[in-house]
Design a protein around this nucleic acid. Structure first.
Lengths: 349, 349
DNA sequence: ATGAAAGCGCTAACAA
DNA sequence: TTGTTAGCGCTTTCAT
């Protein structure tokens, strides 16, 4: 039983033809009970496992989907992946995962590899929103859905988080707490999340008649270090902000670290709101308030859309979903003027 | 160029035979420059991508390895995976990843799927150290290496972290700081890491002539909740410990949370050492001292061993590596008796 | 330097 | 109910 038994071997041992063996392997019925048992036994004894490559050559589909994420070390993605995998498994699909390390070149390679392997579809958070390199997938007629980052030049189903809404609500919350000098630590403006979270911030200020103050806008890069620098820079201002909104998890960590190092009293001298929940949020005193994204749901929905595309190849027009993030109000954003503006509503436009 | 061009199409368009096309695809040389260019052009125009399934049927190997981890949401695994992936890519291999959610049943399915796909090897952190279900891999002659958790009934190359050493050193450090009442929050004793970390603890106590005190041993399950409960239970003791060693990251988080809730002064009334570094470690005051595992190196080594097995099918005897963890001394473990025992050495056996 | 042809292991249409 | 057989797309001798 060492090595590789094939369908022939099984057929021989069970004294039937390979066609019959194939029938029982695929549960197609139409095989006498007795025969089936004999075959099953042979399979058992031989330790036979069917060769997917050979199968794929005939039946075309692989029941496999490819998943590409940019950074496996960012906890956001494993969570999304878990959602995808679960749904996939339930539906009889198998997900193969790969991480690009934010490199478009690597992404290209992986994509090609996926195509070679004949994946039935791909779910991707691209490292290059431009999307030229995704053309090949399109051309091979392989369904695709984008998660968290949209794709510019191709119409693909997309599942996003409503970044604008999330940051709008966070900033709104701060405003209603009485804050007027609200700073933002931005993400890169050439990424969708970076741009959108900034837009939400601006919109909230505008809606409440607060003017945008350049001094309170720090341009970060989604990395921890830039969050740290951001807090330092804001602290160095003569007229310091009373609240900070950080655009992602890593910058939140850096920012909070800096606030601690500066002995800037969190929740008292400086209120805080972050985009994306982080482990440390509940360990700090006060606990961090954050915008939380529905990661698992994102993954589930992505798979669902993909699966529909795989089943019905009809050219349904592109669909785009925006899931709402949730505000988790903890303790890091406190009333600015507890005496003067008890409900904050007085500020409302 | 829509759909699926195959080698035939390319051959036709370039006015050559499929054999010649195959030669250029695989860089086998022996093709006139001019012809090659014509073929390359045809490939380009047709958007041809070779069919891996068909290729595998002939040439046997897939240049693919399968990686199985138990919990993709535990940050330890993505780090290990990153190490594997990097090394694999460098070597021309492709890694497909899958997570079992600690379910032996799912693990079984994934394994079968990997075999069907003809992976050249598998790297696994099994959800079931018993290993019976790994027999099939063995029988198919597919090389395998175990990471972080060993496998009982089969001889496979194994890459572990020296858990005993790590916890020994951590506890030793506490002892040298003057602590005598040192508690441990254990992991499950039916897992290698759980057992070994407990052994290191016991050994350290023994070497320094401290007796094991049942009251200071709390049996956890590697989950955050049990860490929380552990700290509570230890706090409830009349004769409280002066130091706690936590056996893994999640329990560390729970434990520290409880210590905070109990207002048990960390670093003063209660010293602390944890196994595995955690994000929150440097956010607490005092900062947490921890045992840190070389995750990336673990992954790299695992791939390297696997690759050797794949290349040289000779039955080299099983190899087992234990990488040393590192002590990261921060601030959570302080001198117990700064006056009486300035260097702690006096305690030494 | 190039081509013809034999399979790899499987599925599915057609026969019996 | 079961068997025969024609490929799927590719790699790889063996000829030419």
């Amino acid at each position: 039983m060492e090595g590789k038994a094939n369908i022939q071997d099984v057929a021989k041992r069970a004294n039937v033809s390979i066609a019959t063996v194939s029938r029982v392997i695929n549960n197609q019925g139409g095989v006498r009970k007795q025969t089936e048992e004999r075959i099953l036994k042979a399979i058992q004894e031989l330790g036979y496992i069917r060769n997917a490559a050979a199968r794929t050559m005939k039946s075309k589909d692989t029941k496999t989907i490819g998943v590409i994420v940019p950074d496996i070390n960012n906890p956001f993605f494993p969570s999304v992946m878990a959602g995808i995998e679960q749904k996939a498994r339930e539906t009889g699909y198998f997900a193969i995962l790969s991480s690009t390390n934010e490199s478009p070149v690597v992404e290209q390679e992986i994509l090609k590899n996926f195509i070679e392997r004949g994946v039935d579809g791909v779910i991707i958070t691209t490292a290059n929103e431009n999307g030229d390199h995704l053309k090949q997938v399109h051309e091979q007629g392989i369904p695709m859905v984008a998660v968290d980052r949209s794709i510019q030049y191709y119409d693909v189903d997309t599942v996003l988080v409503d970044n604008v809404k999330g940051s709008y609500q966070a900033v709104q919350h701060m405003i209603l707490q009485g804050h007027e000098k609200i700073a933002i630590i931005c993400g890169p403006q050439n990424t969708t999340p970076g741009r959108e979270r900034f837009i939400g911030y601006k919109k909230a200020l505008e809606d409440y008649n607060l003017k945008l103050d350049e001094r309170y806008i720090f341009q970060g890069d989604f990395g921890e270090r830039s969050g740290y620098q951001g807090a330092h820079q804001l602290y160095s201002l003569d007229d310091r902000p009373t609240a900070i909104f950080s655009s992602n998890n890593l910058m939140t960590i850096g920012c909070v670290k800096a606030v601690g190092d500066l002995d800037w009293k969190l929740g008292e001298e400086i209120s805080f709101f972050g985009f994306d929940d982080v482990d440390i949020a509940t360990f700090l005193n006060p606990k961090l308030s954050v915008v939380s994204r529905p990661m698992h749901a994102l993954g589930e929905l992505a798979f669902q859309l993909l699966h529909e595309r795989i089943q019905f190849k009809d050219p349904v027009p592109k669909r785009e979903y925006k899931l709402s993030p949730e505000l988790i109000i903890r303790e890091s954003c406190r009333l600015r003027y507890p005496k003067n503006s008890p409900d904050g509503q007085s500020l409302k436009k």
